[in-house]
């Protein structure tokens, strides 16, 4: 059997990303040490969170409250760090918070059979309301010390942030999980066809909840990663960030209908979306152009997926040679 590199969507994306980086490094200060460092620093949490969202989208669901869940995680981590608790404890604690909140989303979605987008939209609101109402100073924590920021600000060889290494390993781990584990295959199955999944002995409800739990775990990591780059933390830091994660996943080839996509694609998607947005800043566009851009990206990415579907279907139609007439003559 031939082993040639197929021009899959992921490969094309990787090439685009490479060209993009090349272009940026030629025209801007992107290829300086600080440029590369800040690029890696910014992109790491986005990659991890985009992988988190991908897991949920694989099953045909979505989580609009991802950003605000990260806010809770960051608050938890900050609060613990303020009390002098070390990274090895506040990281798992944060992940646990992520798991609990995302798990609640998954539970309501599955148990009451309501669309996850509506559940998580409402949760988004509840979370934000909660910050402002119940957290002292709306969850703002200032002057966090070295025991908090060492992870976010630390770097290997003076250039590679710790977070980037972590993101790298998380990406590898989930590429592995999606390809080599029952759990990974079950996610694709449930997103592909619930009925066929059941015929294959997979419990769709449990699989969806597991996907949400895993999402929460990763959101926890991503939030701690991002928060520890700062000495002050507030939950509202993450409001609206889910938009980037979702468009990263969709650009990376994850189908909004579920069942299709690769983690490598998501990582490439995250890079591309990030590069697009920083180039806009380099080009002098204001920050709020991002919203319009992301909206268009989501529409375009989904539209491509949808059209691909119908094109595929057309090619299935059996061509019969005895068909004489041309199209267009009115019946």
């Amino acid at each position: 059997m031939k082993k040639s590199i197929r021009m899959t969507r992921e490969v094309v994306l990787a090439i685009i990303v490479a060209v993009f980086i090349l272009f940026l490094s030629l025209t801007t200060n992107f290829n300086t040490v600080s440029g590369i460092y800040s690029f890696m620093l910014d992109i790491s949490p986005t990659i991890v969170a985009a992988i988190a969202l991908s897991l949920v989208i694989f099953t045909g669901n979505i989580d609009i409250s991802a950003g605000t869940i990260m806010g809770f995680v960051a608050y938890t981590a900050g609060k613990l760090a303020e009390a002098g608790i070390p990274f090895v404890i506040f990281l798992p604690a944060g992940m646990l918070v992520g798991v609990a909140l995302a798990g609640l989303n998954g539970y309501i979605t599955v148990k009451f059979k309501v669309p996850s987008i509506v559940v998580t939209l409402a949760m988004n609101m509840v979370h934000i309301g909660f910050y402002a109402t119940f957290l002292p100073m709306s969850g703002w924590i200032e002057n966090l010390g070295e025991n908090f920021t060492w992870f976010g600000r630390g770097r290997f060889l003076n250039i590679i942030p710790y977070g980037f290494v972590l993101a790298f390993f998380v990406s590898l781990l989930f590429m592995f999980i999606m390809k080599y584990t029952k759990f990974g295959k079950a996610l694709y199955a449930v997103g592909g066809s619930i009925q066929s999944a059941m015929y294959s002995g997979i419990d769709p409800d449990r699989t969806v909840i597991k996907a949400f739990l895993m999402e929460g775990l990763l959101l926890g990591i991503a939030a701690v990663m991002k928060a520890t780059t700062r000495s002050d933390v507030m939950p509202s830091l993450f409001i609206g960030r889910e938009l980037f994660f979702i468009s990263a996943a969709l650009v990376g080839g994850v189908s909004i209908f579920g069942g299709v996509g690769k983690i490598f694609g998501t990582v490439m998607g995250a890079l591309l979306v990030y590069l697009l947005s920083i180039s806009m800043i380099y080009l002098g566009f204001q920050d709020y152009y991002q919203f319009a851009l992301q909206g268009i990206i989501i529409l375009a990415a989904v539209y491509i997926t949808v059209t691909d579907f119908s094109l595929l279907k057309k090619s299935y139609c059996k061509e019969t040679d005895e068909f004489p007439g041309k199209k267009g003559e009115e019946a």
């Binding site: 029952k182 295959k185 079950a186 694709y188 199955a189 592909g192 066809s193 009925q195 066929s196 999944a197 015929y199 294959s200 002995g201 997979i202 189908s255 069942g259 299709v260």
Partner: peptide, 29 residues
């Protein structure tokens, strides 16, 4: 299936977006 009774349904139970290998062992890898 586990009892050794395999059924091929009229409606396909395959996942169109997955590979042949993934489909063959879906649920009992």
């Amino acid at each position: 299936y586990k009892q050794g009774l395999s059924i091929i349904f009229q409606e396909s139970s395959l996942f169109p977006d997955l590979t042949v290998l993934e489909n063959l062992f879906m649920g009992h890898e």
